[in-house]
Amino acid sequence: MSMITTGQDGGVVAVRLAARAINPLSRLFQRELATLLEKLEVRRAKLNAVTISFDAESGASSHELAHLMALTPAQAADCMQMLAAYNRLLLRLENLGLPVVAALSGEVSGHAFGLALACHHRLGLHDTRFSLPQVRLGLAPVAGEIVRTVRLVGLRAAMPLLLDGAQFDAVQARQAGLLHAIAADVAQLARLSVAVQDKGASQPWRARQHSPPGGMPDAPALRALLPVWTARLAGQAPPAAAILCAMVEGMRVNFEQALLIESRYFCQTAINPRPRKDRLYL
């Protein structure tokens, strides 16, 4: 059964993905996503937009854990290569040259949420819920989930989502800047999807003068906040400390370098759950 299905209405391609199948370390999923992107790139000149939605399943965020438990230090290089390949696929989606609209409903969690963050516009039904719960599973988010979240909402607003695995409702996601609009029902969601298709096909952090909300880590308010969070994380699971390091270090470099830093911390938490105390310098 295909993990990705498509349909077309005029110049708009509607893509639907099985949320549970989205896994950056799955070669099968990467092949299906690459095939989709190739088709979209070939037909780009004849298309107006792409919409993406998910077949969500409750609890789908934990499906990857059993696979990751099998990772060993000898597989670190393979882990990094797989993540680099997946990140390139998401960058192709971002750079498609067409507006990519995520029309969201239900529980959007883990890597499904990560893929939605790579879309240019995110719209959600009023009862949609968002989370990146990997820290609760002993892992760090990956595949741009840390990098994009921090660039979209800023360091302070991203902390509950990334460090606590908190769940945001649609209103909270909208207020944070993760969601562009909320729809009362499916019909309004469809209308909003049409309305945003002429609002561009670029990410805010690609703008020359972009600065994340709340500023950089050396902003006075954040400089005072970071030691508090570092102390708080001392008694928590090791992945939380790795996530905070990835958040801060990623803000100090360009987007592509931030993805590499994020991938390193993910592989660290997946392969070796012990914290690297030498990196807790925040």
Rank of each mutant, 00 (worst) to 15 (best):
G7I: 00
Q8I: 13
D9F: 03
D9T: 12
V12Q: 05
A14T: 09
P24N: 05
P24M: 04
S26L: 05
L28Y: 11
L28N: 14
F29K: 09
F29A: 11
R31N: 07
A34T: 03
L36N: 05
R43C: 09
R43I: 02
K46D: 10
K46I: 03
L47T: 02
L47F: 06
N48M: 07
V50M: 08
T51P: 01
A56T: 15
A60P: 01
S61H: 12
S61R: 05
S61I: 03
S62G: 12
E64Q: 10
H67C: 07
A74N: 09
A77I: 05
Q81W: 02
M82L: 15
M82V: 01
L83Y: 02
A85F: 00
Y86L: 04
N87W: 00
R88Q: 12
R92C: 02
E94I: 04
L96F: 05
V100T: 15
V100C: 15
A103S: 09
G106R: 10
G106E: 08
V108G: 07
S109Q: 14
S109D: 14
H111P: 13
H111Y: 15
A118N: 06
H121E: 01
L125M: 11
F130Q: 06
S131T: 12
L132E: 04
Q134Y: 14
L137K: 03
